[in-house]
Amino acid sequence: MAVALSALVEEADRYLNAARIQDYCPNGLQVEGRPQVQRIVSGVTASQALLDAAAEVEADVVLVHHGYFWKSEDPCVVGMKRRRLKTLLVHDMSLLAYHLPLDVHAEVGNNVQLARQLDLIVEGPLEPENPRNVALVGSLAEPMAARDFARRVQNVLLREPLLIEGDTPIQRVAWCTGGAQGYIDQAIAAGVDLYLTGEASEQTFHSARENGVSFIAAGHHATERYGVQALGDYLARRFALEHLFIDCPNPI
């Protein structure tokens, strides 16, 4: 069964309420392909490897979290950007990308989906008054040692995390997928035992260590694999389409 590309995009935009969030890139349809859709390939980033894999399975739409046309990006279509766009255009594939709207969504969002993977109980946003703060705060059902929780993260994400171990067992947790190490100070102010994100900066170590809080950097890519899969599954169910998630491993 096929569906019009316009209907698919309209539903994704509506479901994620994409227009309400001011972002660093355009959300929604970034590159237009064939007008009818039967097969969606999803992935974290619209890299050349993902595009080649999508073309190999004859995808109609490539659905990603990290697309193109970032505010700080060179607009010239040369080099890597030219090769990527050429692949999409030659194979008549659409590129559908959602950044912050996918992070914050209450059902398929990256942070909610990661919580489900790690058995974290969601309480709500870390900063409820800030619409662009996508971090969440919650808890574990039972306290556990930081090293044991880090082992859980490794077993689920299949990637050894960076752990800075704090002074107390872990129960109250804040987290934000991707490159959100800058939220550690808000997490500390909220009284958490551990803050988890994808990446770390030099100053993250000092913030965690000097405040006695545990910190885990579990990988930008690794923590953001689940939202786009959930969105792809939702769209596939909604329109009776084929959906295939393709993971292109990234150690960062």
Rank of each mutant, 00 (worst) to 15 (best):
A59Y: 00
A2L: 06
N110T: 03
R14E: 04
L244N: 09
A4R: 04
P125F: 14
M80A: 13
E224W: 06
A4K: 10
L235D: 14
R39C: 08
E242Y: 02
S6E: 07
I252K: 00
Q48V: 04
A180S: 08
K86F: 05
L157P: 06
G79D: 11
L96A: 14
G33E: 11
E11S: 09
Q113M: 14
Q229L: 13
V213G: 12
L5I: 01
Y226P: 00
G212I: 03
F215T: 11
A222M: 15
R84V: 14
H243G: 11
Y68M: 15
E202L: 15
S139E: 12
G138V: 02
A145L: 04
K86P: 02
F215C: 15
V228N: 04
S6Q: 03
I188E: 08
A53R: 06
A230L: 06
Q203H: 15
V137Y: 07
G109I: 08
W70C: 06
E107I: 12
D103T: 02
R237W: 02
E56K: 08
L235R: 12
A59N: 08
V104N: 03
V37Q: 02
G232I: 15
S47R: 01
D13T: 06
L231E: 06
A208M: 06
E58G: 08
A236L: 04
L196V: 12
M93Q: 04
L196D: 07
L244F: 06
C76P: 00
L114C: 05
G43P: 06
L100P: 08
E165C: 05
R172S: 11
F205Y: 09
H220R: 14
L50S: 11
R84N: 05
